[in-house]
Design a protein around this nucleic acid. Sequence first.
DNA 1: TTACATTTGTTCGTATGTATA
DNA 2: GTATACATACGAACAAATGTA
Lengths: 78, 78
Amino acid sequence: MIDPDGPVPVYRQVADILAERIAKGDLAAHRPIPSEAALVQEFGVARGTARRAVAELRERGLVYTVPQRGTYVGQPEA
Amino acid sequence: MIDPDGPVPVYRQVADILAERIAKGDLAAHRPIPSEAALVQEFGVARGTARRAVAELRERGLVYTVPQRGTYVGQPEA
DNA sequence: TTACATTTGTTCGTATGTATA
DNA sequence: GTATACATACGAACAAATGTA
């Protein structure tokens, strides 16, 4: 799933996988994506790497984060 | 601000700037200096370089570091 | 009100690999 | 070969806010 030794950074690999899930609708608008702890579990990465992956998605405008709550698909509610 | 191509190593340039701030009192005793992440932001250097700059200050006896807490001006409290 | 678990935010510690002068 | 510097990645600890029991 994740190739730690490939040329693509792990955090981008994780971000790309999540982005695809969003594109496919597996992760629906205004539904939470997996928590950082869950991403650590699922992908076997460090929390810092999971956080960076989520930051990537945020920069791409795919998700928004609510502090102490979670990160959700789409744009923040009005 | 920082001259990456000059004869003086970047880490020492950063250390010198912080040392001057301490000397001028911009950074007061027992107050935290900027975090490593903040130094990365402010000076546009790698984290390793920021860490080395702080290590310089520690060697000069200007600051002390508390793991997972931060680095502070002066000497550790008794 | 209290207590607890969950989640994100932040900090320093450490190691590896790559590139350059 | 050495020193500098950047990027990536894992680890550990603590803080703060939120939601729930």
